[in-house]
Amino acid sequence: MTYMIHGNLILAMAIFTIGMLGILWKRNAIAIFMCVELMLNAANLVFVTFAQSLGQARGVAVFLFVITVAAAEAAVGLALFIKVFNDKQTIEADRLDMLQH
């Protein structure tokens, strides 16, 4: 079963990097948000992999915390996006540059 541990770590690394690349690459705020969720998923995968391989329940407990924080973040963030869209008629990250001027 060692191949599963290694494979999961490599997969989590790849998904985390894809998520980070997406955050830097995408312009739509919701797409950026989805890439954040990808990165959180990669972190969750690492937590659960080590929890299972070491027989530790702590990893699963931390996984529950991460998933709760992700849910709270999604709720507030998406409400903010709706608000910003009503104000500016766009959620393109490049066009929300009020703080630059």
Binding site: M1, A57, R58, L64
Partner: peptide, 18 residues
């Protein structure tokens, strides 16, 4: 334990930790 199959983390253990 790591070299053997994956230990199943029991749910009541997680609940106790929480």
């Amino acid at each position: 334990s790591a070299a053997a199959a994956f230990a199943s983390v029991r749910i009541h253990e997680v609940a106790r930790l929480l």
